[in-house]
Design a protein around this nucleic acid. Structure first.
Lengths: 208, 208, 208, 208
DNA sequence: CATGAATGAGGCTTCATTCAT
DNA sequence: AATGAATGAAGCCTCATTCAT
């Protein structure tokens, strides 16, 4: 029984396409993905995909944009969550949301983080930009939650810490894949812990 | 005037080809690299490349193998360096060698670490194997240098720490690209520092 | 704000479509024109265009037919113009009308004269037929206005002269594009002049 | 029996390709020609065509260039022919060579003269340039052979006359296709005759 | 050893055309 | 009357790979 409908409104089809594309691009390099496989997975044909998303690069860009925005939104919502307990740590909440996204949306994360690291290919430009925006978001999170802790070079230090946090989260997420017995929540705690620990060690060091 | 010689002995030509290929594969996906461009960069023609390395996959495999072995050898040599001072920390020396390789051989590292992260492509198998061997090497390094510190789950914990160390090193190396004012040596120290710090924090935690 | 009206009577919409199509077909080959662009320029959608004109070939045919008839009608009206002065030369009037059309309706003329010169394409059949009808019209004009001047092979000679007149008019029209300082009227006079001059020279030549 | 050889030197294959392409482009619009048909007609495969000529546009450009140069060379050789009789008219010789080319190389002429008249397509740029060069060549021919006859606006007038001569030759050549009984030589004579007759009529007119 | 010549296979993209509403 | 949705078919171009010299 095919559940995929014929004749869907554009908005829905477009999302299905991006869903399929995220999966495809997470599985292999940009160049190893064939547009046809995306079309089939989305229950349509190549021409429709081109009609909506313009080009293979357009497909990729749409993926990166949608998933990047989702991740950033997830972090922000967690940080500003009005239901959070009063004494709760916003940095912890933000990092938790971040790690939850990274582990719970492997495919999105792979596209965002891994596929951006290619030089000189036009399709990588958007990915690279989005990668930076994500890094900045985490950096801002750290900055805004640790005022004063970092000393003079706040922004720069926060950026480096953000990179470390992100790559650590990535390593943890990878680890989870091979070790399903571990609890993601515990892992999330550790990412936050490590970040805090780095922060504390910065207090004594004049510069990293 | 071409400086590349005609009629070189096989071993030399092969190395030139692999040099060219590492550069090429570091610049973009496996699929975005054309065999012809490798041949040209190596100062030969396509048929010769095929004669020596067999296929595109063979070229890639040769790259991964050579660079992987070089990295592993570099770590081992540093750890067992007979010229090292008596009180010197072997873990520190090993991590330093590792980080030195990662930053000093960007192209090799990119091929080794980034191009391996693709599923379902035959060419990725060797890379994935080599990636694991590198992780294991770092894991062994940690294990052998911290006997007792990690508690019961020594090996497993060491592996996780190795992953974090490697991904952190990768993040630092990236950071260096955007911040040339930082000293690679200082960064190397920090990678080691962070690893140690994680190790210490493990002593108190019941399980990661 | 779209100025094109929705829900127009069929005849009007059809004319708008043909207008748009003539413009489109004058700009490039038959094959370089997309039906969608015609639909858009006509303020409708593709299905409507198909509903009215049947197929791309149908669109092209409609253009050729309409513009061809317009040109022929223009010549005839000029020749038989009841308001023309008594001693006026009908050949001159006809040639003038012809040239006026050619320069004043560049797009129509381009479709009629240039797009017909393709072999083996079904869409060219109608254009070719219309091209011949136009030639014949000019040939008839010459024949009917110069009875006796041409000698025995009247019709054949008139046809050749018609071809020369037409291609000369085309050359003049092209020339006008690059030299806006020239007056179309003067050019029209010259086309007629040249035709007359050829006619006179035929009188003495035994055979062209 | 296939006469086409496998494994030909590049220079030869390239010429065969251009031969095939001229034929193909003369038969229909640029867009109606498929690269594969050119490859087949040249006894090769598409990739080889692309390897040598780069792109469809490159194929077209190569045709226009080669045939244009041939035509221009033919005119020049005829004009400067050292074997020509002393009292012979160079204009007549040049026009004869021109007309001989136009009728004897229908396909080349069609590509040069007809396929250039498309706006806004990149492939037409070279054709347009070559078309102009041919016109200029004929214009120069007229100028250099009629010093003083044209009055003050020599160059401009010569250009207009060149256009008329060319379009007339085109009309004659077309006519010959439908009337094989006519002698090309006689036609060539008429083209020259008409050009001279126009020239003479210019002597009295102050400006065309 | 070395390479110029050649191609099968496959991917991106476009377009005329139809359907269902 | 009108159109948003959808696609089969086809064309341009690239690339890994093989021969024959």
């Amino acid at each position: 029984m095919k559940t995929t409908q014929r004749r869907l409104p554009r908005r829905i089809r477009e999302q299905q396409m991006i869903d399929a594309a995220v999966t495809a691009f997470s599985r292999g390099d940009y160049h190893s993905v064939r547009v046809e496989e995306i079309a089939e997975a989305a229950g349509t044909s190549k021409p429709t995909v081109y009609h909506y998303l313009g080009s293979k690069e357009g497909i990729f860009t749409a993926c990166v944009r949608r998933e990047g925005e989702r991740l950033i939104a997830a972090i922000r919502e967690a940080v500003h969550d009005p239901r959070a307990a009063a004494g709760d740590d916003p940095l912890r909440r933000g990092m938790h949301a971040f790690f939850t996204f990274v582990t719970g949306n492997r495919e999105s994360w792979t596209v965002l983080y891994r596929r951006a690291a290619v030089q000189g290919e036009p399709f990588a430009a958007e990915a690279s930009r989005m990668r930076d925006r994500v890094m900045d978001e985490v950096g801002d999170l750290i900055t805004s939650c640790t005022g004063g802790l970092l000393g003079e070079h706040d922004t720069k230090d926060a950026q480096l810490l953000a990179r470390i946090a992100v790559s650590t989260a990535d390593a943890f997420a990878d680890w989870l894949l091979d070790h399903p017995e571990e609890s993601p929540d515990a892992m999330a705690g550790h990412v936050t812990e490590l970040t805090w620990s780095h922060l504390r060690s910065r207090r004594t060091a004049t510069a990293l």
